[in-house]
Write a protein that binds this DNA or RNA. Sequence first.
DNA 1: AAGTGGTCTAGACCACTTA
DNA 2: AAGTGGTCTAGACCACTTG
Lengths: 234, 234
Amino acid sequence: MQYLKIMEAISEQIDAGLLAAGNKLPAERKLADSFNTTRVTLRESLALLEAEGKLYREDRRGWFVSPTPLSYDPTYTTNFPQMAKEQGRLARTELIDAKLMPASRRAASLLKVPPLSEVYRVDRLRFLDERPVVVVTNFILPKYFPNLLEKSFTSSLTTLYREEYGVIYSKTRYRVSTTSLLGETAQHLRATAGSPAMLVERLNYDQHDNVIDCDLEYWRHDAICIESVAELSK
Amino acid sequence: MQYLKIMEAISEQIDAGLLAAGNKLPAERKLADSFNTTRVTLRESLALLEAEGKLYREDRRGWFVSPTPLSYDPTYTTNFPQMAKEQGRLARTELIDAKLMPASRRAASLLKVPPLSEVYRVDRLRFLDERPVVVVTNFILPKYFPNLLEKSFTSSLTTLYREEYGVIYSKTRYRVSTTSLLGETAQHLRATAGSPAMLVERLNYDQHDNVIDCDLEYWRHDAICIESVAELSK
DNA sequence: AAGTGGTCTAGACCACTTA
DNA sequence: AAGTGGTCTAGACCACTTG
């Protein structure tokens, strides 16, 4: 089990600080040579470290050492940049697309509206210290947010909801699972198709307990850990 | 990108119900033949489906179609068998080991006790419909649970805490991240070293807000999704 | 232009599971 | 005993990134 030994060797170098967060690893061919093995086997080790969240890959660019993950509390409403700031990180959001369109099957079922109902769909890409880490897609019920597309998306959606429509997030139902990145989502995150990822789905309620929107968040899985405190019911 | 096409082909067969949950896939060599490719490429497709949680692997036994994941709410105290039952699944727990020992570094830091303090360590393996899905390790502060090892571990720990010591779980701090299975943990789960996994770490408090124990749960990542509702603070 | 990562081939041997 | 999965080798070509 050569690939386990190689994995441990690289792992130790990371833990020892010889390979710092954000650093690029040497070329695969060079690494393979220095471990006296082939690229195939080396890549097995690297994939393992990717699964563990110690390394990440940028498509065609190489392998990098993962920074400390962002601690993400789904029960917090604080917007993304603020959450990052509290943890000493720099965050930035880019608008990919915002439009009115028929709800996808998944979105319709979450929002409990008939399939193909019109909803707003807002796609955004979020960066942590200039690394793209999550693609967020919101499906928003137009009923509560007339003329949403005319608004500016420079501030957070939470802020927009509150200041323009008096809607306040008050409850969220979330779901976390693991998946893999495909197609455009992968491209936005500079990931190779099939990279492991974390999917956070949220269904959000306003202060009157109405469902107002839902969102799908595809995270580079090494970039976050979900962390929260819960009072136990019963 | 042959491996993506193969992945989609298999994926469709699963969605169409041609490959039912729990079914074993044909041998890798046969699959490779039928897709006119090599085992290496085929295995790339299979690994992708594993990352997505549609397939899982049992070490040296082959590839299987994943059943529906268990919905796991960390804010619930209900014990594991009951949680499973509510979702129409059959659960079972096996005791691997229970002993008094010096706290590991990770456990000591979570429990906020000096390194190498004596704590109880209880390792258990949990099955869902006779498939091993999670290895749970509890680190328990002896202070609140004198003579714990003399008790029977046939019922749940929650029940034991309540009935024998009057200790009631009232708050939990949890953390979810992705990782990979190694060593004994992998073996218990019948997994190949390096299989993707989900790690749930919990720090538990009693009714007086004392930390009483912590636990590390290594899940077959296709076997659960974390699902919860949260009232938003502020 | 050179080098790199992404993808793929066509084998091989071994230890283990299964019939 | 046969077949299977786990692991590994030694190449190859292409498209893309980088200097």
